[in-house]
C-alpha cells in the first residue's frame, strides 16, 4: 500500500471514529467506511461487497440512551484494512467478516474509555463557562470529538504497520473448514441484528406486515425497491382505512353498505 493510501485510510478511520459517537453522517457504518477504504486503496468493488455483508450484520446496532451497541466503526475499519492487506480476495471475505465481531466488542470498550475521559473535559468546560469564555467551550468540544476520532485512527495505524505478507500468510494458513465455517456463521449472524430490531418495534398490530413481507420476498423477480414500494403502499392504505373507519359512521355509507347488493337492486 502506498504512503498516500495509508494516510487516506487513517483519515477515513478518523472520520469513522468521530461518527461512531456523533451518529450523524454515518461514516462509521460498514457500508460507508468499507467503501471509502476500498476507494482509497484501489480495491473498491471487493470492499463494497464486504461493506454490504458487514452492514447486514450491523443493521440493528444502535446507541440507545447511555447503552453502547457493538462498535460498527472499529469493526468496519479494521476488517476492511485486514481484507485489503490480505489482497482483497473473495475467499477471505468470510474471515474478514468474522474478525469484525470481536473488534466490535473491543471498540465498545474504547468508546467507554473516551466517554469517561469526556467527563473530565466537561468539568473544564464548566470552569470556562463560569468565565463566559465561549471560544474555550468550542475548543474543548472539538478536542472531545478528535479523541473519538483517534479511538479508531490509532488502531488503524497499528494494523497498517503489520506487513501485508504476514496478514496474507496468517489467513491462508487457515484450514478450509474454519474459513468456510465462519462464512456459514456469517450468513446466520445477520439474524441477530434483525431480531434486535424486531424486539424493539414489534407489536400485535405490525406482525401481519412482517408476514406479508416475508412471503413476498420469495418472489425473486421483485427487487428490494419494488418490495419497499409495496410495503409503503400497504402501510398508507392501512393508516388511511383506519382514519376512515374512525369517522366511518357518518360518511361514505350512503347506500346499504353492500355495493354488490346496490348493483343487484338497480336491476
Amino acid at each position: 500500500m502506498s504512503a498516500i493510501s495509508m494516510i487516506l485510510v487513517v483519515i477515513v478511520a478518523f472520520l469513522a471514529g468521530m461518527e461512531g459517537i456523533l451518529d450523524e453522517f454515518q461514516f462509521h457504518q460498514p457500508l460507508v467506511a468499507c467503501t471509502l477504504i476500498g476507494l482509497v486503496t484501489g480495491h473498491l468493488i471487493p470492499c463494497v461487497i464486504l461493506g454490504g455483508s458487514l452492514q447486514m450484520i450491523a443493521l440493528g446496532w444502535a446507541n440507545i440512551g447511555a447503552a453502547v451497541a457493538p462498535d460498527a466503526a472499529l469493526a468496519s475499519v479494521a476488517s476492511a484494512i485486514i481484507f485489503v492487506q490480505s489482497g482483497a480476495a473473495t475467499k477471505s471475505m468470510g474471515t474478514a467478516t468474522a474478525i469484525a465481531i470481536p473488534l466490535a466488542v473491543a471498540g465498545l470498550f474504547l468508546t467507554m474509555i473516551v466517554r469517561t475521559i469526556s467527563v473530565a473535559i466537561i468539568h473544564i468546560m464548566d470552569k470556562e463557562a463560569a468565565k463566559g469564555n465561549l471560544r474555550a467551550i468550542d475548543m474543548w468540544q472539538i478536542v472531545a470529538i478528535c479523541l473519538q476520532g483517534l479511538r479508531i485512527a490509532l488502531p488503524a495505524v497499528a494494523l497498517l504497520i503489520i506487513p501485508a505478507d504476514q496478514v496474507r500468510a496468517a489467513l491462508s494458513a487457515m484450514p478450509a473448514w474454519l474459513n468456510e465455517g465462519m462464512t456459514i456463521g456469517g450468513g446466520m449472524v445477520v439474524a441477530v441484528g434483525y431480531a434486535m430490531v424486531i424486539n424493539m418495534i414489534a407489536n400485535r398490530e405490525v406482525w401481519p406486515f412482517f408476514a406479508i413481507g416475508f412471503v413476498l420476498a420469495a418472489v425473486t423477480q421483485l427487487t428490494l425497491i419494488a418490495i419497499g414500494a409495496l410495503g409503503l403502499a400497504f402501510t398508507l392504505i392501512y393508516l388511511d382505512l383506519e382514519s376512515k373507519a374512525g369517522n366511518g359512521g357518518n360518511g361514505g355509507n350512503g347506500g346499504s353498505g353492500d355495493p354488490l347488493g346496490d348493483i343487484l337492486n338497480d336491476y
Binding site: M188, V206, T235, L239
Partner: peptide
C-alpha cells in the same frame, strides 16, 4: 406507527433474502 409497519414489512423481506442457512 406507520414507520413500525413499514419496518416490519421490510424486515420480513430481509430475513427471507439475506439470512442464509443451508
Amino acid at each position: 406507527r406507520g414507520a413500525a409497519m413499514m419496518g416490519m414489512f421490510v424486515l420480513g423481506t430481509l430475513i427471507e433474502r439475506w439470512v442464509t442457512i443451508k
